[in-house]
Design a binder for these strands. Structure first.
Length: 775
RNA sequence: GCGGGUAUGGUGAAAUGGCAGACACGCAUGGUUUAGGGCCAUGUGGGCGCAAGCCCGUGGAGGUUCAAAUCCUCCUACCCGCACCA
């Protein structure tokens, strides 16, 4: 028997599928049971190529899509590249290539690899975020944000990555480090573009209850949004017209407030300068504090520092007592109001501070929150931890922010959006694309780029030279896929209405408060502007999201520095895509991830070879004994795929393949192959055609249905327990009654032995399962 | 500190409250016209036993139940998210 030639077979079928477009849905009017949008997070081509962790994710998503296609849905499983942005640019910088040139190289390589894994991608709808036809619409979304008041400029202390030489959004700072390069992030006071995601905080939170998303993602988002209800309370300052507003979740501790603290960045401090008797000391403290990085502030731990604002006294509205005001960097700007009332009796941090600086501690009577707020004229408010999304990047490789600044000395029209008909604002291919390290992008030195006319007054004006965050590119890509050939609109209304929202979205949990938050925000905004219509879930982009687990290697996260990155190419070359797919899925539950070790691959290789040898053993008649295991497998495999429990589905197929060695007909083999097809698309297709002589692809053949009559067991092994311990088994007809089972059980020699000289106090009978004698 | 998760053989892992360890790797023994990292069969949690069978066993300590890996309480270890968040 010729050995299975995976190289030849896989190459042949991949080409054929592409040519015959069997994975292309009818986007205009979905066939069969209707549309099924099967989305997976598209990769960012940042390194040498696709790594096996990507393959793990894509295959897991593909199995689900293939299952739905065979069940009769018109499945849309698109693919693209998130190739714009810092990650791709950093890689280009590292290897000394221009990002635009490198993008073309990566594109070729990634697409080649993505074809080799045998997924049912809709290749006709592929997209790349760096394609001007794509980012034209990314820019258009920015303009819509601006027009609806959701894009604005603000000067504030922002996260700056000293290695990537750009600002970052809060979501992209992980434990004080840059999400991309793990450098310590510092704070810089800069004016930047922001998206007002905070306007959607409440909806982003509430909608979580309506969508079927992995619970851990929901929890992470809830924590990130960080809703807090409390009170805003004003403290008047003695002998001035100023007051300090503080946010507190514990208004009942107001009586215990013995001093106040302002963050060093608090604006009021400068305004109070005339009153502050020790101004030079205060100023020195503020400057020192501002110079510290977030990292330093945290590193200093609980050692509190601070300076009193001498000459300034606040009045506690609860008891009219005068209390001193301090400035200290343990109070953070941007959290709450940047000012606190200190209650040492109820707050550990305040207690430490008070102890160190000898401030009085007075315990306070606990009073009802509502009453207190009313009494002191405070107001109940809700505070969120979520910050606005900082969208500017001082980098080259991204979509230029489509805004024009008309300076007051000229027309004075201030910020104007680029007219939509002038989009895209094309990113010029410039020689010097390196980040500058100033607060400007490399485009700021390209005169030809930034010199323009004000779209409003026609006077000389300057383009924004920053580009937008990569996460804006990926925040709407799923909307573009169905409309990728549409040159007039970003997402055609009819086709969007047909295909959206996404039916199942699969991706990594590391995007819980990055991409997965942004994508929801942008969808909601578009929905509110009437641009997309999938209102059932309040503008949610995906009804279902499942996070896959992390694939590690040798017990550690795959990373280039550890040298444990597994390249899928060699495995595909050696064993074939079918084996790699099944091996990855057999490692464990898909949502749990796994450790990639070579050892287990042999089991799958053996299985695939066994499947290949089945074709020699086809009998002319159905094997009646096979019907029960076959139909049980249909049920088990279907249910397992629906739950993404691919490991147990594969295990069932292995069991079934053993059963088949006792004989089967061509029709029975067809059923087996269909069940296996989502996991091993090539070998099943090969046998389906060359041996079973089918004309159409197995991947669009109908999924088998099980016959409930065939799976019911006629004979049941009843477990016989004594005091809950299994002591024997008796095989009786299905639905045998308690007296029947009891009588049969008591003829069992071992049971007799245990029951000798004992009285049965109680008998527990579970139909078709067990009988338990309590003695 | 807060929130979430995980803990089962030598290994990856299965198990609607109902025979713990399916399936697979590895290992052992035997077979095979097996050059090979091939294929087939059997066995494989620990202990006692020729066997039938018995005892112990799902991180630890309790509890609920006829019956617990599974439910409850407390504890331990590890992983993830958030964090001087007022």
């Amino acid at each position: 028997m010729p050995k299975y030639d995976h190289k030849k077979t896989e190459k042949y079928w991949q080409a054929k599928w592409l040519k015959e477009k069997i994975y292309e849905p009818d986007l205009k009017s979905p066939r069969g049971k209707g549309k099924f949008y099967n989305l997976m997070m598209f990769p960012y081509p940042s390194a040498e190529g696709l790594h096996v962790g990507n393959v793990y994710a894509f295959v897991g998503s593909d199995i689900y899509g293939r299952y739905q296609r065979m069940r009769g849905y018109d499945v849309f499983e698109p693919i693209g590249l998130d190739g714009f942005g810092i990650h791709s640019e950093n890689y280009a910088l590292k290897i000394g290539k221009h990002p635009a040139d490198q993008a073309k190289i990566s594109e070729k390589k990634f697409y080649k690899q993505l074809r080799a894994i045998g997924n049912g991608f809709a290749w006709d709808e592929k997209l790349e975020t760096y394609d001007p036809e794509y980012y034209r619409w990314t820019q258009w979304i920015f303009i819509q944000m601006f027009k609806h008041g959701l894009a604005y400029r603000k000067k504030q202390a922002v996260n700056w990555c000293p290695s990537c030489l750009t600002v970052l959004a809060d979501e992209q700072v992980i434990a004080g480090e840059c999400e991309r390069c793990e450098s310590k992030v510092i704070k810089r006071e800069l004016e930047q573009w922001f998206f007002k995601i905070t306007d959607y905080a409440e909806r982003l939170l509430n909608n979580l209850d309506k969508i079927d998303w992995s619970e851990k993602i929901k929890i992470a988002q809830r924590n990130w949004i960080g809703k807090n209800t409390g009170a805003l309370i004003g403290f008047k300052l003695q002998a001035t017209s100023y007051k300090i507003d503080v946010f507190t979740t514990r208004p009942d501790t107001l009586f215990g407030a013995t001093y106040m603290v302002l963050a060093p960045e608090h604006e009021l401090i400068r305004q109070l300068k005339p009153q502050i008797q020790n101004w030079s000391g205060v100023e020195t403290y503020i400057n020192t504090a501002k110079a510290k990085t977030t990292e330093q502030r945290i590193a200093e731990g609980k050692e509190k520092t601070g300076v009193e604002l001498k000459g300034v006294m606040a009045v506690n509205p609860a008891n009219q007592k005068e209390i001193p005001v301090w400035v200290a960097d343990y109070v953070l700007t941007g959290h709450g109001t940047g000012a606190i009332m200190a209650v040492p009796a109820h707050d550990e941090r305040d207690a430490e501070f008070a102890k160190k600086f000898g401030l009085p501690v007075s315990d306070a009577p606990l009073v009802d929150n509502e009453e207190i707020i009313k009494k002191v004229g405070g107001q109940k408010i809700t505070n969120y931890r979520l910050r606005d999304w900082l969208i500017s990047r001082q980098r080259y490789w991204g979509p230029p922010i489509p805004m024009i600044y008309c300076d007051p000395p000229a027309g004075g029209c201030n910020w104007q959006p680029v007219p939509e008909e002038d989009l895209p604002v094309v990113l010029p291919k410039v020689k010097d694309f390196r980040p500058t390290g100033t607060d400007k992008s490399p485009l700021a030195s390209v005169e030809k780029f930034y010199q323009t006319k004000c779209p409003k007054c026609g006077g000389p004006a300057r383009r924004e030279t920053d580009v937008s965050d990569t996460f804006l590119d990926s925040a709407w890509y799923y909307l573009r896929y169905p409309s990728v050939k549409d040159k007039k609109t970003p997402f055609g209304p009819a086709i969007t209405k047909t295909w959206l929202p996404v039916d199942v979205y699969i991706g990594g949990a590391e995007h819980a408060v990055l991409h997965l938050l942004y994508v929801r925000f942008v969808a909601m905004a578009l929905h509110d502007w009437g641009l997309v219509d999938f209102s059932a879930k309040g503008g949610e982009p995906a009804t279902r999201f499942r996070a896959h687990g992390l694939l590690i290697s040798g017990g550690a996260k795959m990373s280039k520095s550890r040298g444990n990155v597994v390249n899928p190419d060699e495995y595909i070359k050696k064993y074939g895509a079918d084996v790699l797919r099944m091996y990855l899925m057999f490692l464990g539950p898909f949502d749990q991830g796994g450790d990639f070790r070579d050892e287990g691959v042999a089991g799958i290789v053996r299985f695939i070879n066994r499947v290949w040898s089945l074709k020699e053993k086809i009998a002319s008649q159905d094997s009646l004994e096979l019907n029960r295991p076959l139909h049980k497998s249909i049920k088990k495999v279907s249910e397992d795929i629906a739950e993404l429990h691919y490991n147990t589905a594969i295990s069932q197929l292995m069991i079934l393949s053993r059963e088949m060695e006792n004989g089967f007909s061509a029709e029975q083999l067809e059923i087996f192959l269909k069940l296996l097809a989502p996991f091993a698309p090539h070998i099943t297709e090969e046998i389906w055609h060359s041996i079973l002589k089918n004309k159409e692809s197995i991947h669009i053949a109908p999924w088998p249905e099980y016959n409930p009559k065939l799976i019911a067991d006629e004979m049941i092994d009843f477990i016989i327990q004594i005091n809950g311990k299994a002591r024997g088994v008796v095989t009786l007809a299905q639905n045998s009654t308690e007296p029947e089972v009891s009588a049969a059980a008591q003829t069992n020699a071992n049971i007799k032995k245990h029951l000798a000289d004992k009285t049965i106090i109680k008998t527990v009978f579970v139909p078709n399962r067990l009988i338990n004698f309590v003695i």
